[in-house]
Design a binder for these strands. Structure first.
Lengths: 217, 217, 217, 217
DNA sequence: CATGAATGAGTATTCATTCAT
DNA sequence: CATGAATGAATACTCATTCAT
């Protein structure tokens, strides 16, 4: 699925890109503070460094800004995720490393993640599929990595479990941000990552099982 | 923390309760469809079966309705969760059962869950703590059950892991709803629950580990 | 064709009628000065004696006001026209009298007529038919009166001529208003009416014809 | 009265004329569709084949375009009217012929006529006199022709009647256009012209009168 | 001369909230 | 207690006009 076009009146493509960068930057800052609905177009224009008239030279409707913002965030996340996963060698150790990297990236982007979680639903039925699609692609990247480990005999999961594990991973990375009111009081980021990875790989095993398992040479 | 008071002009307590029930029922239906921001107070009044004037006899501001609604939803969830967990006998088997029950309840309430996820952030800094508190309490219920298993020697988890596992459980129960656009295409609810529980208890174990573990007598 | 409904949020029918009267009065005054497009809804509200919010309790869109205004004007004209024509006895003399009355009424309403001529086209395709229908009905009233004279042997016109004569009459009555920049400099109203009626009944006859005709005993 | 100057920034007179021709052509097409108010300057620029910036090199304000357009239309009408009337030999027959020609021209230009009727009022108090003046001149052309007939003894009308007859003629020619919603359903253009001329020359005469008149040798 | 990006005053419309009845 | 008419601040979006390139 291609990127959804947001129509601009201005023809100069370079300029459109530049102005939209300004716009996204300004809008993100405001959305972080007050959310999409409570932010006015005039505020966005001001925060972007141009007039309300100019703003509308680069979009058609307020919702276009939200789309641009969310789309941009997904691109950022994807970019980071790609980097995190590309080192991956198909071993458990490298998988754990990738996950830790991803968790850390998401922690850095927690405010963006928050905006996405809370505002994406304000996208029209028209725009929503495009961003969901991006999310599906990202979950797919995790799946691929996990599936790799399974192929290598490092993990033993069926297809349903692989898919679900990928989902869980994706969500847990963002959880640090969207549940920070609880998690960030109880854990440092390092603790969170460590514990999360432990649970992920050991599961909530029975005590004996674990001893025996742990007891292997 | 006590329930936050929403001021009413009407004195008759019985009536207040009754009217608010009507209000919540009407508002929930609307919030499910269009979200809090896109729903007007007039629509809520109409859906509740009384006039806009009357609506304001029982609340002070529109946000009060959101608080009432979200608060009510949390109560509902808590109620169900309590029921799910009270049978619990501290064994792994009963824990798995409780989790399955909870996942099923959350699937039934997925629309409500969606509303909570998407609209709770619209609560003022003033009201938010009250509902977050309820959520913390619910996570605490899970913690307690897990901790019980640990005490019984059924599970071997440290305190950090217990807390986190509780969080994960809580979120995964709601995930079926808030990521339905992806999950409900790939899984039936039963499959989701089964796979989720498998992952939860086995973790993403190494293949050999699992064989050995499984191979115990 | 029934009157087009303009939706009001207010339920009290009496009040709707009263407020719309105020609205029409205020709007007409403004439309006379600056036309529909140059008049803002706020100005109309102020001129009507209530707030912009209240204005919108009684209409849905700005265009509704135009419809209300034009519709009202047509009703006024019709009312007067009915009165002018009802005395009519089917003789040439009484026809001339009716016409003179009508011309005089239109002169009184010239500003309203001007508004109608200039703004009616701003009505949506949706509303236009309703007012055109009223105009057709009024032309029909003239036709009927003329046809009466024909039946009585007072006039000798075929059906096409009757219809056209009715149109001409209708338009000429309004001409005094919509061409006042020319006519009102050259004629008093009495002169206009007198000359117009002469032309209407004699036509631009050949000189000899007229002498002979005039010379009859 | 001289033509009103519309200021241009561009000096090259030839170019000014050419660009304004483009402009008028583009604007007329748009005004026919949507009227002056609903047409934007950008649309006019695009329809004219140049940019908004260029448009403003040849006018000062949007209203200038309307003036240019209306002025041009009057010139067109005048041109045709001159052609229609110049054959005129001062007889009744040739007068009827001229009238028929004029009616036919106006039928061809009905959309332009409509624009003039509906939009001319949007001209500023400043520009209006110039175009009204043109209209007065055209009515004067009709007057002259009629007066000629009177001098030749072909018609017997006093000065007031001459002027009024000229007005009526002028308006009736345009009526086919501005009342087309009624007339064009009931008449073909030929029927309209024929009936209108009959009424014009016979008037709505008494039946006896007509017989007697018709009975002359 | 031509272009088109920038501007911001202006406008219709909505909606939470109040308060007299 | 219940009603619903009144209010006006707030807001998205438009468009004539300017001016630097």
């Amino acid at each position: 699925m291609k990127r959804r076009e947001v129509q601009a009146s201005v023809k100069d493509e370079k300029l459109v890109v530049k102005r939209r960068e300004q716009m996204i930057k300004g809008a993100v800052a405001l959305f972080k503070q007050k959310g999409f609905h409570r932010t006015t177009t005039r505020e966005i224009a001001r925060a972007s460094g141009f007039s309300i008239g100019t703003l509308y030279e680069y979009i058609r409707k307020k919702e276009d800004i939200l789309y641009l913002v969310v789309d941009h965030m997904y691109d950022q996340i994807r970019e980071r995720l790609e980097k995190d996963l590309e080192l991956h060698k198909g071993t458990l150790e490298s998988l754990k490393l990738s996950i830790a990297y991803y968790f850390r990236e998401m922690a850095e982007m927690q405010e963006e993640v928050l905006v996405m979680y809370q505002e994406a639903k304000s996208l029209s039925k028209d725009a929503l599929p495009y961003v969901l699609n991006k999310e599906i692609a990202m979950v797919g990247m995790f799946e691929e990595v996990i599936r790799n480990c399974v192929r290598n005999g490092e993990l033993d999961l069926n297809e349903k479990q692989i898919k679900l594990a990928a989902h869980n991973l994706f969500v847990q990375g963002q959880m640090w941000g969207f549940r920070r009111w609880a998690l960030q009081k109880a854990y440092t980021l390092d603790e969170y990552i460590e514990s999360q990875i432990e649970l992920l790989f050991q599961g909530m095993q029975g005590a004996r099982t674990k001893q025996e398992t742990g007891g292997e040479r």
